[in-house]
């Protein structure tokens, strides 16, 4: 398991990286954490002939807090996000999702951007991005900067809207202001830290009386991309999130999934898990948002 040969460039600047990407196109891959890319290269499932190391680019580590969103540089390490108390308050779903991601060693190297561009439909951070409809900021030498919502970014398993010359530079995560915001991330994997057989995430905002004011829900591992369901979430607004309502929403969401089958889980089981996990996520979030109202 040794990677196929490649030439290695240490990007000195973002322009340097973008220039290499522009020149080499699909043969060129940016590498940051490499936690998915390096194993794929070792198995020769990925074989870029040019590798651009973007780990030294401070521009891709920048962090900006705005009132309605937080911008995280693409190579922000998962471990740093995990330890970021402010981020935990402003975008709590990231920390919720990270509880399920890999292990200390992988989170020390793994980056937010790497997970998103790898676009594994079972991975946690893509689901969090889809559920919150984060915005992915892409740059290329010729196309300049463009901003793609998560709802358009994930196209198919391991395939995104980013073109070959583009580098993900940052991710903007919406911040929900006000009281009563809570979120939950649920998944089932056979071992902790593995990709989920199915996962579900939600973020909700409840009024003091328990009425849902704002909601977003999504499923992972049950289609070629992480799924968000804005229309179904919309139906939660103005209602209390009861077990019945959560079950209904979860069933409708799961009905739209297109799970695959592998040795660990067949499609029927995954779809069933989707229902269970989304219901649990909604109820857990609701209970956290309004502990007094929880049954």
């Amino acid at each position: 398991m040794k990677a196929a040969p490649f030439t290695f460039h240490r990007a000195e600047s973002l322009d340097h990286a973008l220039d290499l990407l522009a020149r080499h196109g699909g043969d060129c891959k940016p590498i940051a954490g490499g936690q998915s890319l390096v194993p794929m290269m070792a198995m020769r499932l990925a074989r870029p002939s040019v590798l651009v190391d973007i780990n030294r680019l401070d521009a891709l580590k920048a962090r900006h807090d705005a009132p309605d969103h937080v911008t995280l540089g693409a190579i922000t390490r998962q471990r740093d996000m995990e330890a970021d108390v402010a981020l935990r308050r402003s975008v709590p779903l990231i920390a919720e999702a990270l509880r399920w991601v890999g292990h200390v060693q992988t989170r020390n190297r793994g980056t937010i951007g790497g997970s998103l561009v790898h676009a594994d439909p079972s991975a946690e951070l893509p689901l969090a991005a889809a559920v919150l409809d984060a915005t992915l900021v892409l740059r290329s030498q010729n196309g300049g900067e463009r901003r793609v919502p998560a709802s358009e970014f994930f196209v198919a398993p391991m395939f995104t809207a980013a073109n070959e010359a583009e580098c993900l530079t940052a991710v903007e995560w919406p911040v929900w202001a006000g009281a009563g915001v809570s979120c939950a991330f649920e998944e089932v994997a056979i071992r902790h830290g593995d990709f989920a057989m199915a996962s579900a995430a939600c973020q909700i905002q409840l009024d003091p009386d328990g009425t849902c004011r704002r909601a977003t829900i999504g499923l992972g591992g049950v289609a070629g991309t992480p799924l968000a369901f804005p229309d179904l979430a919309q139906r939660l607004i103005g209602r209390r999130i009861t077990a019945t309502l959560a079950q209904e929403a979860a069933e409708e969401a799961a009905a739209r999934s297109e799970p695959g089958t592998d040795m660990h889980a067949d499609a029927g089981y995954r779809r069933h898990l989707a229902v269970v996990l989304l219901r649990r996520a909604l109820l857990r979030a609701a209970s956290a948002a309004t502990p007094a109202l929880a049954a």
Partner: peptide, 13 residues
């Protein structure tokens, strides 16, 4: 055929 699918239990299992 890899450790991604052949699952050895970890300390958490």
């Amino acid at each position: 055929g890899s450790f991604m699918d052949y699952l050895l239990p970890s300390a958490q299992e």
